[in-house]
C-alpha cells in the first residue's frame, strides 16, 4: 500500500506536448509510470511517442480509464485544466504549474473541496510511490521503496531529505510535494491523515517553511491522532519578515508564520524537530531505532503477560 498513487494508477498528462510536459512524460514512462493518455485541446488525433492524445480529459477517462492526472499547462490556463480533470472524474490531480494567481485558485479550491478528489499542488514537484509510480518532476533515482511517508512544501529541499533517507537505506512509502503557494489543494493535514491511515507507512517526515499556519494545524492533529513518529523541519529561520522567499506562500506577514513559531508548535505536538536540514535522515534513523526497541519491549511484555496468564490458567487446571 501507499497513498494517492500506486502501480495501478492510470495517468493522463494535461499539456503533454509542451516543453515541460513532453520532457517529464518521457521521464515518468522511463520510471515505470503507466501514462495512458495525454490531453491537448485540438490535438486529439495525434499521439506522443505512442501515448494517445485526446481533446478532453473525459475522453481519456472513458477510453483509457485514466484515474490520475498531472498538469503542465501555463498558469492562466491551469485552473481550467484542474476543474476539467475533476469534472471528468479523475481522483488524484497533480498540478505542477507555478504562478497561478491566488484569486483563481481560491475559486478552484472552493469547488474541488466539495468533490471526491485529491488535488496536489499547484507549484509542486508532484507525488511518487517509489518503485511503482512517479507523477511529477522529481528525480526518480534518489528514492527507495520503504515505509516512510514524506510530505513537503518544497521541491529540491524534499529531494535533499529523500536522498538523506535513501543513503541510510531508509525507504519511502510515498513522497508528496504539496506546493509552495498560499492556496493549495492538499495541506499537510490532508496528507498526514492519509499517511496515518496507510498501513505501509510507519513514520512521517514533514518539511515546512515560513508563511501561513498549515504546519501548526497539522501539529494539532498529530498530537491528537498520530501514533506514528514524525520528524519535522522548517526552512526559513533566517528569512526577513515581509519578504516573499521565492515561493508565493513563503512570507512572514504581520509577524505571523515564522519558523520559530512553527517549530515550537511542532515540538509541543511531539514531533522530532531538527534544527539543521542536514540532519533529517539521521534523525529519522535514530527515531526508528528508538521506536523499534520500544515495540520489541512492548511485544516482549505482551508475550510475558500472555505466558503468565497461561501458566496461571494451567495452574488452575
Amino acid at each position: 500500500m501507499s497513498i494517492l498513487i500506486n502501480k495501478k494508477s492510470h495517468v493522463v498528462v494535461q499539456g503533454i506536448t509542451g516543453g515541460e510536459g513532453s520532457f517529464h512524460t518521457t521521464q515518468m514512462i522511463e520510471y515505470g509510470t503507466k501514462v495512458v493518455a495525454g490531453v491537448v485541446p485540438g490535438k486529439g488525433d495525434q499521439n506522443f511517442n505512442g501515448v494517445p492524445i485526446y481533446n478532453t480529459v473525459s475522453e481519456a477517462v472513458k477510453i483509457q480509464k485514466a484515474d490520475t492526472s498531472v498538469i503542465f499547462v501555463p498558469p492562466l490556463f491551469a485552473p481550467d485544466a484542474i476543474l476539467e480533470a475533476a469534472y471528468a472524474g479523475i481522483k488524484t490531480i497533480v498540478c505542477i504549474t507555478e504562478g497561478i494567481p491566488a484569486k483563481d485558485m481560491i475559486k478552484v479550491y472552493d469547488v474541488i473541496k466539495k468533490m471526491n478528489v485529491h488535488l496536489v499542488g499547484p507549484n509542486c514537484p508532484g507525488v511518487i510511490t517509489p518503485g511503482e509510480c512517479k507523477v511529477g518532476i522529481m528525480p526518480g533515482f534518489i528514492h527507495r521503496r520503504g515505509k516512510i511517508g514524506v510530505v513537503s512544501r518544497s521541491g529540491t529541499l524534499t529531494y535533499e531529505a529523500v536522498k538523506q533517507l535513501s543513503d541510510l537505506k531508509i525507504g519511502q512509502s510515498t513522497c508528496v510535494g504539496i506546493g509552495g503557494d498560499p492556496v493549495i489543494g492538499s495541506t499537510f493535514l490532508d496528507i498526514i491523515k492519509l499517511f496515518n491511515e496507510d498501513k505501509n507507512t510507519d513514520a512521517i517526515v514533514m518539511i515546512g517553511e515560513i508563511g501561513g499556519t498549515a504546519e501548526e494545524e497539522a501539529a494539532v492533529y498529530i498530537k491528537k491522532n498520530v501514533k506514528k513518529p514524525v520528524v519535522g523541519f522548517i526552512a526559513g529561520r533566517t528569512a526577513p519578515p515581509g519578504r516573499r522567499m521565492g515561493h508565493a506562500g513563503a512570507i512572514i506577514s504581520g509577524g505571523k508564520g515564522t519558523a520559530a513559531e512553527k517549530m515550537e508548535a511542532m515540538r509541543k505536538a511531539g514531533i522530532y524537530v531538527v534544527e539543521s536540514p542536514a540532519e533529517i535522515g539521521i534523525t529519522m534513523k535514530k527515531v526508528l531505532e528508538k521506536f523499534k526497541s520500544k515495540q520489541i519491549k512492548k511485544t516482549e511484555n505482551k508475550r510475558r503477560t500472555i505466558k503468565k496468564s497461561q501458566t496461571r490458567k494451567s495452574k488452575k487446571k
Binding site: 513537503s152 512544501r153 518544497s154 521541491g155 529540491t156 529541499l157 524534499t158 535533499e160 509552495g180 518539511i207 517553511e209 515560513i210 523541519f233 526552512a235 526559513g236 529561520r237 533566517t238 528569512a239 522567499m245 521565492g246 515561493h247 513563503a250 519558523a259 534544527e275 539543521s276 536540514p277 542536514a278
Partner: peptide
C-alpha cells in the same frame, strides 16, 4: 529551488 535556498541560509547561520 526556494525551499533548499532557505534551508541553505539556515545551515550557514547554524
Amino acid at each position: 529551488g526556494a525551499g533548499l535556498a532557505m534551508a541553505t541560509m539556515d545551515i550557514i547561520k547554524l
